[in-house]
Structures are given as C-alpha cells and as structure tokens.
C-alpha cells in the first residue's frame, strides 16, 4: 500500500467515524432534548453533517470512479432537502403556536402530549 493510499484510507475512516459520531449525537438529542424545536435541530444535524461526511468518506474510499459522481449528487440532494425539511417543520410548529421550551416555562414546552 502506497503512502498516498494510506492517507486516503485514513482520511476516509476519519470522515466515516465523524459522520457516525454526529448520527449518534443527533439521535441522542432526538431522544433527550426537551421540546420540538431542539429535537428538530438535533435530527437535522444528523442528516446534514452525519450523512454528508459518511458519504464523503465513502467517495474517498471509492477513488476515481463514476460512482463518486453519484455520491456527490446524493450529498448535494441531502444538503438541499434536509435543512429545508427541518425549516418547514420548525416554521409550521412556530406558526401554529407551539412555544419554544425555556427553563422558566419548563415541562414539554406546550407539547401536544
């Protein structure tokens, strides 16, 4: 294995591990955060940073190949759609009158259940 390849593999491993870490943290946030807005925030981070860096790592592993173009297309799609979905969710919640959680209000922050 040449030095270049070793560096490439190491970078790919680092990227995939970073992505997995973000997924783990995002999922923890989805479970542990107190209200709708912060949960949406956690879930959206998962999708953009987590999936983005995992896919980038996979593209690095693939090397010069047509598949890399497909992976790049998937990354741009995810980067475009996931924040939009998060934005739409948060906006719909805000416009229908869901109050964000604060330490003072506490509880479920006016959650429906």
């Amino acid at each position: 294995m040449s030095l270049f390849e070793a560096i490439r593999n190491a970078a790919a491993v680092v990227l995939v591990c970073t992505g997995s870490f973000f997924f783990l943290v995002g999922t923890l946030g989805l479970i542990r955060f107190p209200d709708f807005y912060s949960r949406t925030h956690g879930a959206t981070k998962c999708d953009t940073v987590g999936a983005g860096s995992i896919l980038l790592g996979l593209a690095l592993l693939r090397g010069l190949h047509a598949d890399v173009l497909k992976i790049l297309a998937i990354i741009s799609l995810v980067l475009l759609t996931s924040p939009t979905a998060g934005h739409a969710l948060a906006r719909a919640a805000y416009r229908t009158g869901l109050r964000p959680w604060t330490r003072l209000v506490g509880g479920g922050g006016g959650d429906a259940d």
């Binding site: 799609l77 475009l80 759609t81 939009t84 934005h87 739409a88 906006r91 416009r95």
Partner: peptide, 14 residues
Amino acid sequence: VALSPVVRYVVRLL
C-alpha cells in the same frame, strides 16, 4: 400555515 419561500424555492429547484 403560509408556506415558506425557502420550501417553495427548493421544491421548484428540485
């Protein structure tokens, strides 16, 4: 709920 211009733009783009 009035739809956001962001969503509209992204959907038109995609």
